[in-house]
Design a protein around this nucleic acid. Sequence first.
DNA 1: TTGTATGCGTTATCAT
DNA 2: ATGATAACGCATACAA
Lengths: 346, 346
Amino acid sequence: MKPKLTLKQIARELDVAVSTVSKALRDSDEISVDTRQKIKAFAKLYNYKPNNIALSLKNRKTMTIGVIIPEIIHHFFTTVISGIEQVANKRGYNVIICLSNNSFDKEVINMEMLANGSTDGFILSVAKETQQKGDYQHLTEVINQGMPIVLFDRVVDEIECDKVIINDREGARKAVQHLVDIGCKKIAIITTVDYVSVGKLRTVGYRQALEKNSIPIDENLILKIEDVENSDEEINRFLFRNDVDGIFAVNEQFSVSAIRGLNNRGLKVPEDVSVVGFTNGELSKRFIPSLTTVSQHGAQMGAKAANLLIDKLENAVAGEEKYTTEIIETSLIERESTLLNLPLKI
Amino acid sequence: MKPKLTLKQIARELDVAVSTVSKALRDSDEISVDTRQKIKAFAKLYNYKPNNIALSLKNRKTMTIGVIIPEIIHHFFTTVISGIEQVANKRGYNVIICLSNNSFDKEVINMEMLANGSTDGFILSVAKETQQKGDYQHLTEVINQGMPIVLFDRVVDEIECDKVIINDREGARKAVQHLVDIGCKKIAIITTVDYVSVGKLRTVGYRQALEKNSIPIDENLILKIEDVENSDEEINRFLFRNDVDGIFAVNEQFSVSAIRGLNNRGLKVPEDVSVVGFTNGELSKRFIPSLTTVSQHGAQMGAKAANLLIDKLENAVAGEEKYTTEIIETSLIERESTLLNLPLKI
DNA sequence: TTGTATGCGTTATCAT
DNA sequence: ATGATAACGCATACAA
C-alpha cells in the first residue's frame, strides 16, 4: 500500500525542487530536456496522477458539473443523463449525479453540498415537492454566488437562467390529434395535478387538440392523479364510470394502468380503446400491446443542457447576461396500442 | 453576485484573525463567548458555508463515496443506489454516481478521476466488458493506494475486497423449483453468456433445481443470449423450435421477450406456459400478465455495501485485513405469469 | 483570549 | 535551467 504519489515526493526522490517537477510534467521549456525526461519517466513509472482536489482549490474550478434529478426510475432521466455525459466528457468535464427523490429537503442538501466547491455549475430538474412548495431560494442563492444553472424538463418560470424544455403542450397535442385521426371520439386524459409543470402543459395540449377538432371538452374525462401510489385504483374506478374510445396518458405508468383498467372492464387495446402515452421508455417498447408514445428525445435534451452550461462556464468573463430557453420538439412513435385491425407483433 | 464567503473575508470584516473565526465557528472554548457569538451571527447572516474542497485537501478525507455502476436502466441498480444513499447520508457521507455504460474504458476513466482525490472509497459493480476482458488492474491499483472498495452484484473473484452478492444460484433454484411445483415439465432457461458472473450462477441454479427433481437436462432448452440488441429475434426463434411449458428468464427483458415470442406462436402466459423472471422492477410489476420474479432486495444490498465501506474507512487505522463476502438472499414474488386458472387482476 | 505559522498538493511568479 | 515563495480555504499547534 503506497499512499499516492505527490509532486513533493517525486521532488525529494529526484532531489530537485517541487516547482521543477511541476513544470517538467507540464512540459515547460523552462526546464532542460534532460531533467524533463527524467522526471516524466519517473512519474510515469510510479504512475503519478495529480490530485484533483488540490487542482480544484488552486484553480477555483472543478471541471465537474452537478446533475440533480428527481428520480432515476423514469427512463427519460437516464437518457438525459447520457446526453449530458456525452457532451460533458467531450468538453473535458466530469459529471456527478445526485438524486432528490422528489424531496425538497434532499434537493436543497444536495445542492448545498455540491455548491460548496464540488461543482462549477448545475443541471437540474426540480423535485415535485419543490414545485409544489414554490420555494426556490436554494436556486437563487446558487445563482447569486455566480454558479450557472441550467434547468431542464421540470423548470420554474420564476428563476432566471438557461432552460431546456420539452414542448410538452405540442407533444400532447400531437398525441391527441393522432387519436382523433384514427377515429376516436371520446378521448380521456390521465394526467398529474397542475403544480407539476409538465403535467399542466400536457393537459393544455389535450384541450387545444380537442378544440381544434371541434370536440367538446368533457371535464369528466380529465383525470388528475394526486396520489401516484394509488393511481392504479383511481384509474380503474375512472375507467369504470366513463366510456371512452381513446386515452392519452401523460406517462408510461398511467398508460399501463389504464390498459389494465380497461382489461378489467373487458375492453381490449387497441381493438376497443386506443391509448397513447408519454415517454418512450422500456415499458412502452416492451409492453403488450406496445405503446404508441410521445418520445422526448432525452439524450438530445441532455446534450443541449450540457452545452448551454459549459458555454456559460467558459464565457463567464465575457459575461453574457442573456438567458435562453431551448425547446426540444417531441415525436410521436406509433405502436400497437393505437393500431387498429392489425395483427400484433413487434 | 457575491463570490462566496470565506473565513478570510469574515476575519477581515470583523477585524480578527482567520484562526479566530475558524475556532469560533467550531465553537471552540478558546474563544470568548462574546466574539464567538458575534462571529457566528455574522456567518449565519451571510450564510457562510465552508468550502468542501479546502476541507478535503486539509483533512485528506472527502467524506464522499463513489459509486460506479454499469447501467442505470436496470431498475435493480436504482434500488441499490437508494440503499447506499440512505446509509451513507445517515453516516455523514455523500454519494456520487458514475456510469460505466458497461464500457471498460469508461469504468477505468471514471475510477481514475474519482480516485484522484474526489472520493474516499468505491462501491462498484463491474462492467460487462470488464468481466469479459478480465483486466482488473484499475481495481488493484486503487486498492493498493489504500482506498477501500466494495464490489456488488457483478463481482470478480480475483480481487480481494469486501463483496456483497445476491445468492443468484439459490434464487434461480427457487424460481425453477416454483415452476416444477406448479407442474411444469419442460422448463427452458433464457440466460446470458457465461462471462457475466450472475448469468452463469443463475444457470447453475437452474441445473441444480432440475437435477434435484430428477428432470433430465435438455441442453437445447438452455438459451444463452450473446447479443442483447437482437435478443428478441433470438428468443423468438428459440421458442418456435422448442416446446416448453415453463420458462425461467434471468432478467426482465428476457421474460418479456419470451412472452411475446410465445404469443407469436399462439401460446398464452400463464395458461399454456408459465414464466418466471429475475429482478423485481417496473416491468415485472406492470406487465400484463404481471411477472412472477426473483426479487433481489437491491436496497438492502446497497445498504450493506455502504456499511461495509464506511466501516473500512473509519477503521482504517485499526487496519483489519479481513474481507467479508455478504450474501443477500432473494425472495420469489408470485404474480400472474405463473398463476394457473385464476382470473387476471392486479 | 487571540493571533501567527504551517501544511494539505498544486501552480504561477519571481528570484537565482 | 532551477529553485524559493506565495496563494487557493481551512484547521491546528503553538506563541503571545
